[in-house]
Simulated scan of single mutants.
Amino acid sequence: MKIVLDSVAKGPRDTALPATSVVFETGQAALSRAETEQRPTVLGLIASGRMRPDSGTVTIDGRTDFGAMRRRIALVDAPDVCEPAPDVTVAGIVAEELMFAGLASHPLAVRRRLAGLGAAEYARFAIGTVPPTVRIRLLTELALLRTGVEGVVIVSPDRHGGDPVEWWRFARELAGRGIAVLVVAGDASAAAIAASALVSRQFPAEEDASAPQTFDEDPGRDDTDDLFRPESGDLIVENS
Results as ranks from 00 to 15, higher is better:
residue 102 G to P: 12
residue 62 G to R: 02
residue 144 L to G: 07
residue 155 V to A: 06
residue 177 R to A: 11
residue 228 F to L: 14
residue 129 T to R: 10
residue 197 A to N: 06
residue 170 F to Q: 05
residue 63 R to T: 15
residue 172 R to S: 04
residue 112 R to C: 07
residue 239 N to I: 10
residue 73 I to K: 03
residue 234 D to A: 11
residue 240 S to P: 12
residue 9 A to V: 05
residue 102 G to Q: 06
residue 133 T to I: 11
residue 174 L to T: 00
residue 114 L to V: 12
residue 88 V to T: 15
residue 226 D to P: 07
residue 140 T to R: 10
residue 15 T to W: 08
residue 137 R to H: 09
residue 81 V to K: 09
residue 125 F to E: 11
residue 119 A to W: 06
residue 123 A to C: 03
residue 192 A to T: 14
residue 55 S to N: 06
residue 28 Q to W: 10
residue 70 R to M: 10
residue 188 A to I: 07
residue 222 D to M: 04
residue 59 T to R: 15
residue 16 A to C: 06
residue 226 D to E: 14
residue 123 A to S: 05
residue 184 V to G: 05
residue 4 V to F: 11
residue 13 R to I: 09
residue 29 A to F: 05
residue 128 G to M: 03
residue 29 A to Y: 03
residue 35 E to N: 11
residue 85 A to V: 13
residue 112 R to S: 12
residue 128 G to P: 09
residue 196 S to P: 01
residue 140 T to G: 10
residue 188 A to R: 09
residue 52 R to E: 15
residue 232 S to A: 12
residue 209 A to C: 02
residue 33 R to P: 00
residue 94 V to C: 04
residue 64 T to D: 15
residue 150 E to D: 14
residue 54 D to H: 08
residue 218 D to W: 06
residue 73 I to T: 04
residue 238 E to W: 08
residue 56 G to W: 03
residue 147 T to Q: 15
residue 196 S to K: 11
residue 141 E to Y: 04
residue 183 V to P: 01
residue 14 D to L: 07
residue 19 A to I: 03
residue 105 S to N: 08
residue 197 A to F: 07
residue 57 T to N: 13
residue 103 L to P: 12
residue 140 T to E: 07
residue 207 E to F: 05
residue 234 D to T: 09
residue 95 A to L: 11
residue 177 R to K: 13
residue 227 L to K: 03
